[in-house]
C-alpha cells in the first residue's frame, strides 16, 4: 500500500462519513440513529459525521425494509457513492424485512437490493447497539489494512 493509500485509509477509519437513508422504515430506527448523533451518545466523538449527499459518504446507513418504490432509488444512491463503500442495515426490518415481511409492497431486507456489510438487529436498534456496530465495522477495516 502506497503512502497516499495509507493516509486515505487512516482518514477513513478515524473519520467515516455516513449517509442516512430511510428505505421505508417506521421512523423508530431513524430517531435512534439521530439520538446516536446527539449529545447523550454523541457518535461524533469517533469522527462519524452525517452528510447530506451520497457522493461524500463512506458508509450508507439504511433503516427499514425495501419497498418496491424506493428500491430503484436505493440502488441509485448506492451507485453514486465512491469506492470503497459500506452499507450498514440498522434494525430488524433492514436485516430481514421484520414484521413487514410478506406485505404486498415490501421486497425484503436491504440485502435484497444492495450488498450489506454489517447488520444491526433490534426493533429499533438501540443507540448502544448502533455504536457497537459502527466500532465493529471500523475494526474490520483496521484488520483489512493490517493484512494488505
Amino acid at each position: 500500500m502506497g503512502l497516499v493509500d495509507c493516509i486515505v485509509n487512516w482518514g477513513r477509519i478515524k473519520s467515516p462519513w455516513i449517509l442516512h437513508f430511510n428505505s421505508g422504515a417506521c421512523n423508530a430506527c431513524d430517531i435512534e440513529i439521530i439520538a446516536t448523533l446527539t449529545p447523550r451518545y454523541d457518535i461524533e466523538r469517533f469522527g462519524v459525521l452525517l452528510k447530506g449527499t451520497p457522493r461524500h459518504a463512506d458508509v450508507l446507513v439504511c433503516s427499514g425494509p425495501v419497498t418496491f418504490q424506493v428500491e430503484d432509488r436505493l440502488k441509485r444512491i448506492y451507485e453514486q457513492m465512491a469506492e470503497p463503500k459500506f452499507v450498514v442495515a440498522v434494525g430488524t426490518c433492514a436485516c430481514s424485512g421484520g414484521v413487514f415481511k410478506g406485505c404486498y409492497n415490501i421486497k425484503g431486507g436491504i440485502n435484497t437490493a444492495i450488498p450489506v456489510s454489517l447488520y444491526i438487529p433490534g426493533c429499533p436498534a438501540s443507540p448502544k447497539a448502533i455504536i457497537d456496530g459502527v466500532v465493529k465495522l471500523l475494526e474490520s477495516l483496521e484488520e483489512k489494512e493490517g493484512k494488505e
Partner: peptide, 14 residues
Amino acid sequence: LGYNHRGIEKACEE
C-alpha cells in the same frame, strides 16, 4: 407519495 407505503392495512387482515 408512496416511498414509505408498506401495505399494513392489508397485512392486518392476514
